[in-house]
């Protein structure tokens, strides 16, 4: 017997509020549109379509000791890293949209650094300045789709030779 009965009862009471949350996790996590198939970046693209923020919800609800995700290492659908340009950028935008918008408005930040690496650009400071200048083109409204945001970012990065971004 690993755990005394007392401990069991403790956790029953203690875990009560958590269970409601875990239900939401389970139900949302198993939907899986598979829209981005094996090219997706992380689990979000497996489980959701293009709903803005949806990917972040999933990230937000896979929590703590009782996290729920739909796939393990063996199914490997994640793909993120330098040189992936379009797909890498899109995946990154999906999951980091709120943080990215903030960093772009500031012309600086970790999310801009990551975009610089994904798109093989030369200098994150220049990238930040260029994205900041185009903020209203990239995020014309709070409801712009992730696809449009991605497209505008790619156009900004790859349309400006001086940024030295790789070819997509």
């Amino acid at each position: 017997m690993r755990s005394s009965l007392a401990l069991a009862i403790a956790a029953v009471v203690f875990a009560f509020p958590a269970a409601a949350q875990s239900r939401a996790q389970t139900e949302s996590a198993i939907k899986g549109t598979g829209k981005y198939g094996a090219a997706g970046c992380g689990l979000g693209s497996m489980a959701f379509g293009d709903t803005p923020g949806a990917v972040q919800i999933l990230a937000a609800t896979t929590n703590g000791l009782f996290g729920t995700q739909t796939f393990g290492i063996t199914t490997g659908t994640s793909n993120c890293g330098p040189g992936l340009f379009a797909m890498g950028t899109k995946n990154f935008v999906e999951a980091n949209r709120e943080a990215l918008a903030k960093d772009i408005s500031r012309g600086e930040g970790e999310a801009i650094g990551a975009l610089t690496v994904i798109n093989a650009c030369g200098d994150s400071h220049k990238v930040g300045a260029a994205l900041q200048k185009n903020f209203k083109t990239i995020f014309p409204s709070e409801s712009a789709s992730n696809d449009d945001v991605t497209r505008a970012i790619l156009e900004t990065l790859h349309g400006d030779q001086s940024l030295g971004c790789g070819k997509s």
Partner: peptide
């Protein structure tokens, strides 16, 4: 992490505690 397969709070806790 545990793969939670129940929405029942009691089951959830018991299953978590007893492997």
């Amino acid at each position: 992490a545990a793969t939670v397969d129940t929405s029942n709070a009691i089951l959830y806790a018991v299953k978590g505690l007893f492997g």
